[in-house]
Amino acid sequence: MNELTEAILIEIEQRKDYLNGAAVETVYFGGGTPSLLPEVQLERILEKIFTFFPGKKTEITLEANPDDLNEKKINHWKSMGIDRLSLGIQSFQQEILKAYNRAHSADEAKKAIELGRKGGFEKFSIDLIYGFPHPDHHLWKKDLEEALRQDPGHISAYALTVEPKTVLGNWTKKGKFTPAEEDFTAEQFEWLQEQTDKAGYVQYEISNFGKPNQFAVHNTSYWKGIPYLGLGPSAHSFNGVERGFNPSSNPAYVKMLLSGSSPFQVDPMDRTDQFNEEILTGLRTIWGIDLDDLLHRYQVDLRTIKSTTIHKLEKEGWLLAQGNHLSLSRRGKLLADTIALELFI
């Protein structure tokens, strides 16, 4: 058996009590390329999860790259109980995929959705990236038009970020690639909001757009502060009291578990950290922040200590304040992190 899979199986058993007996209702295979795992290894992991966390699962998602998909794999995933595919499409434009150094083609991106549907999958999410530098917006408009024509039910869209030690990072360093201006990217975000809204999608989180009843159940738990257990390299966890993470290095993660130790490290957070994180994540969602709930749990009343800030943001049209509830306006979603920072204690 693959050593990484063996290590994950050990960690499942090792951390079976992390959630203090709370039910595990969703499973998400992601944060890498789980679709590359042989089906037998994926099946072993899922079986172990059901052994230590029994009960009905409302959603089991698998991240997959379009070039990894074939009929046999899809049928096997479906037979295991996986019922939602998250497809890393990024773009339907060949020139953009080439720039991103993606292995799949524009045709494979479309075929991935078709293969999934033929295999009986009814729940999909597709990832798109906007903000690719270009003289105008027509490439992004074509991407979004194709995405909505495919009508996956859920779209996750992220602004292009150039990371060091990537192809784009190296090109940028050498002057071969110039990232788009902020205003250009913001215009594409606003077009995304407008077109998804017209197509019946709800922007229930800054980067996530779903049709009613097709929101990602698993990811929504993160944003609502519901405890979750993360397993594998780089995985993060939260049990309602503390947060923690595993090392990002696969060899380090495997070595620790196969030698009998735990790779999990606690990330200390005091009450102020926890409060501010709830502001940050809550504002990103359609549900916003319940001020009465925060007052009850933290004994902090934002209406009192941040009244001037709230009034200013509301007057400028960035923030919506209704009774005990704060949420971002459509315009405010352009500056979510900045607004959250103004409300931090």
Rank of each mutant, 00 (worst) to 15 (best):
L258W: 06
K306L: 06
N276H: 07
W318F: 12
P66L: 03
F189N: 04
P54N: 12
Q265P: 04
S248G: 14
E71N: 04
F53M: 05
V300W: 09
I279L: 13
R297H: 14
F29Q: 01
S35T: 03
P251G: 09
F184V: 07
T166C: 09
S86K: 02
D151K: 06
G116V: 03
A159M: 06
R117S: 02
V167W: 02
Q195C: 06
L258R: 14
E13Q: 15
A7G: 00
L69M: 12
T51V: 10
G30K: 00
W77G: 02
A199N: 00
Y100N: 07
Q90P: 07
Q322F: 13
Q299L: 06
Y130C: 00
S327Y: 05
Y28A: 03
S248A: 14
P233S: 11
K306E: 04
K255Q: 14
K198H: 12
T220Y: 09
T304I: 13
K98G: 08
L302G: 02
G332Q: 10
E25V: 08
R297G: 00
L160H: 09
G30M: 01
E190G: 02
Y158M: 00
L4I: 13
P66V: 06
Q93F: 05
L128W: 01
G244K: 05
I345Q: 12
T338A: 15
